[in-house]
Design a protein around this nucleic acid. Structure first.
Lengths: 209, 209
DNA sequence: TAAATTTAATTAAACGTTTGTTTAAGTTAA
DNA sequence: TTAACTTAAACAAACGTTTAATTAAATTTA
């Protein structure tokens, strides 16, 4: 699916507003106003408000898949090094595209929007299969332990990153970092999260040398 | 704050509907219909729809605090044993009160409802302070490691549990457990999650003997 | 205790907004 | 001269909340 500049502009705007105020909490008029377009354009281009939401997700699905596939085929890195890259790029993506990931989290919690949920599930399944292959590779070389629950492992990565992101203001308050510039605070938070997740993955995945 | 039976009935109904369809996705008329009351009763008892949401959270806050405080003061268990109890009771609560925890997750993602967010943050801060005390205790006895990021640790517990809960249907599908009875599936899932979290906590907290 | 009075609970109807979507007229570009 | 785009206006439906009237319960008075 290809989109014109105007359509992409609508998608981007809607993505931010959906993430900020929720799907139900965002009206088409809000989107139209923020994007500087007429309310009828959403129906014209995407059929409906729900169609717009689907367009938002489909635009991301392909990008993620490609990136993962390329990484896994890379033969210059060991399985655990690849795992570290996955953690890194995941955190980067989480923080650089917070609105989108908030939207994903919201959509997973929601019961409506069956096509959207199916799309998210397909996305996740594909990604998880790729990671499973990576783990199998590491088990063959003896770098990884034998019994690994891939799904629990991924739930920890996604869940922890999500939790840290959604409660970052709380984290900031508790640690007296409210007077720090946003950028610097996020840098520290990312660093902490990265170290934390890598320690967790190491404990679960790696065989003691 | 004390509530009459009728008020509790409204709170319980609203809690389920909010969790299922979101705050914005649930109308006062939906709540009234499901609870078998008139639409005006919500405004009459709780002032507004938002007031109802606050009532939902305030009812839980006290309960959690009491339980945690009692556990920590218990001298018959070691710090790590207490930590295991915390994980267990957390998982139990997560699964037995899924609608409520979905609602919490939704509310944390949402930007509106400042009083509600403040209440959630207070709740979390109190709980985290108690757990911090528990960890300090374990560090004094030498059972726990020195450098522990309590907030990252809690983010992993809450985040992982949340992620597993919200994507349980996906977990079920991928592992070919769709024909299993609900109850049995949840039992297995809880067991896996418990083992997973305990392994994580052990790796992060405990000193090698 | 019985009746009278006050307070609380409950109702249906109506309020003004806002919602997603459609229409029909207009503009721009191919 | 088509076709694609863009618009303002209108649509019915749903929203949270308020109103005023009515019933039920509690309290006071006789």
């Amino acid at each position: 699916m290809e989109y014109t500049d105007k359509q992409v502009q609508i998608i981007d705007t809607a993505q931010d507003l959906f993430a900020e105020n929720g799907y139900d909490g965002t009206s088409i008029r809000d989107i139209a106003k923020a994007a500087g377009i007429n309310v009828a354009m959403v129906s014209y281009y995407f059929g409906s408000k729900e169609g717009l939401l689907e367009a938002i997700f489909s635009r991301h699905a392909e990008y993620v898949r490609l990136k993962l596939e390329n990484l896994i085929q890379d033969k210059s890195q060991s399985p655990f090094q690849k795992m570290e890259v996955i953690i890194d790029s995941y955190i980067d993506k989480y923080f650089s595209q917070q609105p989108f990931h908030k939207l994903v989290a919201r959509s997973q919690l929601s019961n409506s929007n069956k096509p959207v949920k199916d799309m998210l599930n397909d996305m996740k399944k594909r990604n998880q299969d790729l990671i499973k292959r990576l783990i199998n590779e590491g088990q063959k070389t003896g770098e990884f332990k034998k019994n690994i629950d891939v799904q629990m492992l991924m739930s920890t990565m996604l869940g922890t990153a999500n939790q840290v992101m959604t409660t970052q203001d709380f984290y900031r308050e508790v640690n007296n970092m409210t007077d720090l510039p946003d950028e610097e605070f996020l840098k520290i938070l990312k660093k902490k999260l990265r170290a934390h997740l890598q320690a967790l993955f190491k404990a679960i995945l790696k065989n003691e040398d």
